[in-house]
Simulated scan of single mutants.
Amino acid sequence: MSRLKSKPPLIPKSIIERAKKFNTTLIADALYDSNTGVMDHKIKPVSSGMKVIATAITVDMKAGDNLMLHQAIYAGSEGYVLIADGKGHKKNAYLGELMAGAAHAVGLEGIIIDGFVRDKEALCELGFPIFAKGFTPNGPCKDRPGEINTKITCGGVTVHPGDLVMGDDDGVVVVSQVKIEDVFSKAEKKLAYEQKRLEEIVEYGSKRKKGVTTGNIEPSWLKNKIGNFNM
């Protein structure tokens, strides 16, 4: 039997807007200590430039069967992204042009699948954020049950309904709702550091071109790190 649980509450718009300051690399760095949240590197957008920041609706599918993905699409709405555990299946595509178009029409923010898709040219033209492991022309079956809005694993990451999901050209990251404030705080500090470093690097390069070569742009932590290997 399939189970369709009610949609999780949307993550507040204030948090979504705050998340838009970051990219997946900043969030991945903020998650580094916990070693969780970063999906398999093979899960990438079907076309460069696709981005998604939204609340997770989870879909647990049988390998090679997209019945539950169909149901999840038509149960979806604005503010949500479908996260589908396709079990890394490579023989069949889980969706193509029609399903992506339907998901876009109902207002979903994107679809992320641990598996393959098809109709690459049409998906790229549509511009609707689809993240997957690759492409194959083979279609799936639609015969077996699954579950919607239960805990799943996608790309090696545990995903709960209602988690914050972010995807861009570098990949996909997942942040548990209970960790959002801590992760964002770390990401904001890293963002401030990177912005300051970029300014220093640009300034140094500009001065060097004018013949000024005093000072250096080594990060402050480098000498200590290297010193540890010279003991």
Rank of each mutant, 00 (worst) to 15 (best):
D182A: 07
T136R: 15
E109G: 10
K210G: 05
R197Y: 06
A100Y: 01
D169C: 07
K190A: 15
I112V: 10
N224I: 14
L69E: 01
I201N: 04
G86D: 04
K91Q: 10
K90M: 11
K87I: 04
D29W: 12
Y32E: 11
D29H: 11
Y193G: 04
I83S: 02
Q195T: 11
E109R: 14
K225L: 15
I11S: 02
E125R: 13
K142W: 11
R118D: 08
E121M: 12
T153S: 07
D85V: 02
D33E: 15
N138G: 14
C141K: 15
F116P: 03
P219V: 15
P137M: 07
I113A: 04
F22C: 09
A75C: 03
H70Y: 13
M1Q: 11
D182M: 10
G86N: 00
I83K: 03
S206G: 02
V159K: 01
G146N: 00
R208M: 03
A56L: 00
S6E: 10
K44V: 09
P137Y: 05
W221Q: 15
Y94T: 01
Y193N: 09
D60T: 15
S176G: 06
I180R: 03
I27L: 07
K196Q: 07
G64T: 04
S185H: 12
F135T: 11
I113D: 04
D119T: 13
D168V: 06
N66D: 12
G162M: 01
P145G: 09
T158C: 11
E200S: 10
L198W: 08
T150R: 08
L31W: 05
G162Y: 00
A54K: 01
A72S: 00
A75D: 00
Q71N: 06
H160T: 06
K186P: 00
V59E: 01
D85K: 04
V157L: 02
L10I: 09
I11K: 07
S47F: 14
Q195L: 09
G110E: 02
A84M: 00
V212H: 10
L126Y: 03
D40K: 07
A100K: 04
R3T: 12
K13A: 15
S176T: 01
A72C: 04
H89V: 07
A84H: 00
K223A: 15
K51T: 12
P145E: 03
E125N: 11
K225P: 13
G205H: 10
K21H: 13
G110A: 10
P129R: 02
G205K: 11
R208A: 09
F116A: 05
K120Q: 10
V52W: 00
A63N: 08
S48G: 10
K90A: 13
L222K: 13
D33S: 14
P161I: 01
G146A: 01
L222P: 06
I43W: 00
L67Q: 12
D85L: 04
D29M: 12
N35G: 13
A132Y: 02
V173T: 05
L108N: 05
I201C: 03
D170V: 09
H70C: 14
E97V: 06
C124I: 13
V46P: 00
V59L: 06
F131I: 05
A100V: 08
E194C: 12
E200K: 05
I111G: 02
K7N: 02
D170Q: 09
P219N: 11
M68W: 02
R197M: 10
G171L: 08
V178F: 03
T158K: 06
V183C: 06
K210E: 09
K207V: 10
